Amino acid sequence: MGWHFAARGEHGWAIACRLVPVGVLAGFASSSATVMAVTAGAGLGLIWLAMVSARVRASVDP
């Protein structure tokens, strides 16, 4: 999705699409430390998925 947004000139979305997965993976990687890390990582991923889906849906011509 980062490439998609970069090609459209939406650089903020492109950068976020590249950084959010790092946060999700960090949450899962630190799962041995606390359950909240996994919860935060999963929550971040699901919220980001919803935001990107809504953004792409809004940009599609009806």
Rank of each mutant, 00 (worst) to 15 (best):
G2E: 14
G2Y: 10
H4I: 12
F5W: 00
A6I: 05
A7Q: 14
A7C: 11
R8H: 15
G9Q: 03
G9M: 07
E10G: 03
E10D: 06
H11E: 09
H11Q: 13
G12M: 11
W13A: 14
W13F: 08
A14K: 01
I15S: 04
I15E: 03
A16W: 01
A16Q: 02
A16P: 03
C17I: 05
R18V: 14
L19S: 10
L19T: 12
L19I: 12
V20I: 14
V20S: 05
P21G: 09
P21V: 08
V22N: 07
G23M: 06
G23F: 12
A26P: 01
A26G: 10
A26D: 00
G27L: 05
A29E: 07
A29S: 13
A29P: 06
A29V: 10
S30F: 14
S30I: 01
S31E: 08
S31W: 11
S31Y: 09
S32G: 14
S32E: 10
S32R: 07
S32L: 10
A33I: 15
A33L: 15
M36K: 08
M36G: 08
A37W: 11
V38Q: 07
T39I: 14
A40Y: 05
A40I: 02
G41H: 08
G43Y: 00
L44V: 03
L44C: 08
G45C: 05
G45L: 01
G45S: 06
G45A: 04
L46Y: 06
L46E: 01
L46W: 09
L46F: 13
I47Q: 06
I47M: 12
I47T: 14
W48R: 02
W48I: 10
W48K: 00
L49V: 12
L49I: 12
A50W: 00
V52R: 07
S53R: 10
S53Q: 02
R55E: 09
V56P: 14
V56M: 13
V56W: 12
R57I: 01
A58G: 08
A58H: 04
A58N: 00
V60T: 01
V60A: 04
D61F: 09
D61V: 09
P62C: 02
P62F: 04
